[in-house]
Simulated scan of single mutants.
Amino acid sequence: MGPEVPSAPPSASEPSAGAPWAGMTRIIACGEIDISTSGRLYRGVLQVLRRQRPTRIEVDLAGVTFLDASGVRALLMSRTAAAEGGCRLTVVNPSRIAHRLLDIVGLLPTLYPAALPLPPADFRQPRR
């Protein structure tokens, strides 16, 4: 299989200006992201950056069944290209395999900020 790129912005019923979706594009990747498909993901991100000029790209990895080092490299190269264009690229909904590999290589906090642990309870609540 491989990544499906580019994705569509939210439907017309979604709020636009000033809404969380404004300036954001979601790319949905599915199947195997390996040496034979990782280039498609990277080229897809570059295409989105050129055509849409978003301020934020989310790469949805929920449907990813396999991810290898070349897939991780494609994500990192995509993140760099996005940053150079003034865009922030993050990963959302990583599948179990994608989550595990990103955690093993130490990139989970970098690419998937939602994985950051919550601060200790005493830090979150005001002291009395």
Rank of each mutant, 00 (worst) to 15 (best):
54 P>W: 13
47 Q>L: 10
8 A>C: 09
118 L>Y: 01
30 C>R: 14
21 W>D: 08
116 L>K: 06
60 D>N: 14
59 V>M: 09
9 P>I: 06
103 D>G: 01
59 V>S: 12
104 I>H: 03
13 S>L: 15
80 T>D: 08
92 V>Q: 05
112 Y>G: 09
53 R>K: 15
78 S>L: 04
5 V>N: 07
116 L>Y: 01
90 T>W: 03
101 L>W: 04
44 G>K: 02
62 A>Y: 08
86 G>N: 05
111 L>A: 09
13 S>V: 13
102 L>S: 05
51 R>Y: 12
91 V>L: 12
29 A>H: 10
56 R>T: 07
120 P>S: 03
79 R>V: 00
40 R>F: 04
74 A>Q: 07
46 L>V: 07
105 V>W: 01
123 F>D: 03
23 G>N: 10
78 S>Q: 06
73 R>P: 00
46 L>P: 00
47 Q>E: 15
111 L>R: 06
126 P>D: 13
112 Y>C: 14
100 R>V: 02
106 G>C: 02
124 R>S: 10
34 D>Y: 08
52 Q>I: 06
44 G>Q: 02
38 S>H: 02
47 Q>P: 03
55 T>L: 09
2 G>K: 04
68 D>Q: 03
62 A>C: 10
120 P>L: 01
66 F>Q: 06
83 A>L: 00
34 D>G: 06
123 F>P: 00
107 L>A: 05
79 R>T: 02
84 E>Q: 05
93 N>R: 12
79 R>F: 00
124 R>Q: 09
69 A>Y: 04
71 G>M: 04
104 I>Y: 04
14 E>I: 06
35 I>L: 10
71 G>S: 01
29 A>S: 11
88 R>E: 08
11 S>Q: 00
50 R>D: 15
94 P>S: 15
98 A>F: 12
26 R>I: 11
106 G>H: 06
59 V>P: 09
69 A>K: 01
6 P>E: 13
23 G>L: 10
126 P>F: 10
45 V>D: 14
99 H>D: 15
32 E>P: 01
49 L>Y: 08
96 R>F: 08
50 R>K: 11
67 L>P: 04
18 G>N: 14
8 A>M: 09
41 L>R: 08
58 E>C: 11
90 T>Q: 14
112 Y>I: 08
60 D>G: 12
12 A>T: 05
95 S>N: 08
101 L>D: 05
114 A>K: 10
114 A>T: 11
1 M>Q: 05
27 I>T: 07
11 S>L: 01
33 I>M: 05
98 A>L: 14
41 L>N: 06
17 A>C: 01
63 G>L: 12
124 R>C: 07
65 T>P: 02
51 R>L: 15
106 G>N: 04
42 Y>T: 14
61 L>N: 14
65 T>M: 02
49 L>N: 11
22 A>W: 09
11 S>I: 00
107 L>T: 03
118 L>H: 03
70 S>G: 02
77 M>Y: 09
58 E>S: 06
52 Q>A: 14
69 A>D: 03
119 P>D: 01
28 I>M: 11
20 P>A: 13
